[in-house]
């Protein structure tokens, strides 16, 4: 019975420095009702003693919003990458295994450096340029139906789970991964954003871009926000096919 359980056991993969080897450390902490992985990690931070009773350093992790919208607290929990804020202890098999998302450089313990995703967003121009030297006025209106559709794509929080799940995002490849690709679809769908559509498409036709997708479709299975990532990728495949034809054979649609 869950309610009779006195303690919660954790096996945490730790790493002291970015370049030092990882090691495992076990923790056993008192159970409280409605705990999640974050509150358990907070308990370890409050009293950093491992399962052997030895004093140790507090486990390092990242967190921010605590309601699964910021993506900062992503880690691999019992083998699957997800947010630790919505990982409820009562729903997890014990001992609970926590690991960092190794697709990204590990900073320390469970903290990783997700910079590559933010660099990718810059690379694909995942924004709408509206600044000018004078007032450009209101942009074209967006139909409500399309806004609702685009909202689903805008839920991406750059958490990195899809990159962690993707077999083609690894140290041997420079694939930018599903998240930034889907953002291209989002910004190209926007009436003002569409003005820079070709630029974004050409960015993902570059090295490490869209064509590196191998269709394992792990991303869409793993996305905590249920974003239709593989539909985005296939839709972009169609767009870049047309763009490639335009570039080579010529088109007035610049």
């Amino acid at each position: 019975m869950m309610s009779e359980k006195k303690t919660v056991r954790f096996i945490i993969t730790r790493q002291d420095r970015p370049d030092s080897p990882p090691y495992e450390e076990e923790f056993e902490i008192p159970y409280r009702p409605n705990m999640n992985v974050i509150s358990a990690l907070m308990e370890i931070r409050r009293n950093p003693v491992n399962a052997k009773g030895e004093k140790t350093t507090p486990v390092v992790w990242e967190m921010n919003c605590l309601e699964e919208v910021c993506g900062a607290c992503s880690m691999v929990i019992n083998g699957k990458p997800r947010q630790s804020c919505t990982a409820l202890i009562d729903h997890l098999e014990q001992p609970i295994r926590l690991e960092p998302m190794r697709t990204f450089p590990v900073v320390r313990d469970l903290q990783v450096d997700r910079s590559r995703m933010f660099d990718s967003l810059k690379k694909v121009k995942a924004w709408i340029p509206i600044d000018g030297t004078h007032d450009l006025g209101p942009g074209p209106r967006m139909p409500e139906r399309k806004r609702q559709w685009a909202y689903e794509l805008s839920k991406c929080m750059t958490c990195g789970v899809c990159l962690e799940a993707c077999p083609n995002v690894n140290s041997k490849s420079n694939f930018i991964g599903p998240a930034p690709l889907s953002q291209v679809r989002l910004f190209n769908a926007h009436p003002t954003g569409a003005m820079n559509k070709a630029e974004r498409l050409e960015a993902i036709m570059g090295d490490g871009g869209l064509a590196n997708c191998g269709n394992s479709q792990n991303c869409v299975q793993s996305c905590p926000k249920g974003i239709p990532l593989t539909t985005s990728i296939a839709a972009l495949n169609r767009e870049v096919t047309i763009q490639a034809f335009r570039n080579f054979f010529g088109s007035d649609q610049v």
Binding site: G79, K80, A165, P167, N168, N170, K172, S173, G214, N215, S216, Q217, N218, Q221, S222
Partner: peptide, 15 residues
């Protein structure tokens, strides 16, 4: 050889 297969962790049909 640039893929890092992970079917043991992501046991999905397409994977």
């Amino acid at each position: 050889f640039t893929a890092k297969n992970n079917v043991s962790r992501y046991n999905y049909f397409r994977n």
